[in-house]
Nucleic acid binder design. Sequence first.
DNA 1: ACGACACGGCACGGGCCGTGCCGTCGGTAG
DNA 2: CTACCGACGGCACGGCCCGTGCCGTGTCGT
Lengths: 197, 197
Amino acid sequence: MSDSRASRHDNRTEAIMRAALDLALELGYAKLSIEAVATRAGVGKHTVYRRWSSRGLLFLDAVLSLNTEGLSHPNTGDVVADLRETMTRAVKLLARPPWGPLYQALIGEAQHDPEVAAALNRRFIEPQTADTLARLKAAKEQGELAPDFDLDLAFDVLSGPLYYRLLITQQPITHDYIDRVLQAVFAGMSPRPKTSY
Amino acid sequence: MSDSRASRHDNRTEAIMRAALDLALELGYAKLSIEAVATRAGVGKHTVYRRWSSRGLLFLDAVLSLNTEGLSHPNTGDVVADLRETMTRAVKLLARPPWGPLYQALIGEAQHDPEVAAALNRRFIEPQTADTLARLKAAKEQGELAPDFDLDLAFDVLSGPLYYRLLITQQPITHDYIDRVLQAVFAGMSPRPKTSY
DNA sequence: ACGACACGGCACGGGCCGTGCCGTCGGTAG
DNA sequence: CTACCGACGGCACGGCCCGTGCCGTGTCGT
C-alpha cells in the first residue's frame, strides 16, 4: 500500500505517546524524561524530537489523545439538568486516574510554558466552552434563560469552582459539590432578589 | 548582641529568596536553578540546601515573603461592596508583575509537588478563605445574607472564576469581570427565582 | 584564647538535555 | 533487479544542573 509509510510513522507516534502516559503515571510528570520515553517506546530520541519540540507539547498531545468524546452537551429541554449531566461526566473522568493526575499535570506545565497554555486553550478549552455556550444560547432562545443572561460569564462561573478544587485545594469533587454550584449559579446566593449591588 | 548569629542567618535567607525572585522574573521559574540562585545571592549551594529541601519550597517561601497584608476584609456593613473591595485589591496585585507571573508559576509547581501544594494551602489559601468566611458569617448574622446561604461554597464560587482566568484562559482580569462575577453570584443568573432545579 | 559552627569555594559522579554521526532497513522510482 | 532515499535505532558527545562530600576560613559564644 502507498500509506504503509504513513502507517509506520503513526505507529511510532502512538507508541511514544503511550510510553509518555505510562511513565507520567508511574513517576509523575515532573520526573518524566524524553530519554526514558524514547527507551520505553523502543525508539531513538531523534524520533521523539522530530515530532515534538518540547516535553510539554508531547505531553499535551498524549493527554488529549485519550479522547474525551462524550463531553458534548445533551439537549433534553432542561438546561440545568443538561449542564449537570455534562459536569458530572467531566468530573467522573477527572475524579480518578488516569485522567485526573494527567490533566492536573498538564495544566501545571501550562503555567510554565506559554506554548502549552495556548495549545491547551485552542484544542481543548475553547471547543468545550463553545459547546457549552451553544447549549446556553439555545436555552436563552427558548426562553429558559433571561434575555440579559451573561452567557460569556456562565462557563467561567460554572467551571471555575471545579478547577479551583482540582488545582488549588485539591479536594475531591463530588456530585453534591456540582449540585451546590448549580444551585448557587442558577438560583442565586442572595436572600434579596434585588441587592443594593 | 546575642542574636547577631541569627541576624547573619536571616540576612542570607533573605538574600537567597530575593535572588530566587529576581531570577524567576528574568528567566521564568522553569529555568530557575538552585545553582544560579546561590551564585546570584553570593552564597554556597549548601547554604541553600540547608534551608530548603527543594526548589519548590524555596520558591514558595520567596513568593509568600512578598507580603500581601492588606488582603483582609473591611467591614463597612455592605458585604458585597466589601467583597468587591477585597477582590479588586487581590486582582490589582495579580494583574501585573511581579506577583502575577510568580503566583502563577507557584501554582504550576504545586501541580507537580504535593509538598508545595499542601504548604500553599496551609499558609496562604486557608487563611484567606477563613478571612472571607468570617466576613460572610458576620453578614449572615446581621441578616445581610439568607440563613441558608452556602457559606462554604461562597469562596469557591467567587475565587474560582478568577483562578480560571489566571490559570486556564490566561485572560486579563478586569474590574468589569469582578463586577460581573459578583452580579452573577449575588443576584443570581436565572430569570426564574425558582427554577425546576 | 579556644572551640563550635555556619559558611564559600571547589570537585565529584550522575542524570538528562539537545545534537551530531553512522549503519540499517524498508519503500519507491527507474 | 537495482539504485536511491528517507526515516530510523544506536551511540557518543559537550553542556547544564543535580545533590553531596571535603577543606579552609571567618565569626561568634564560652
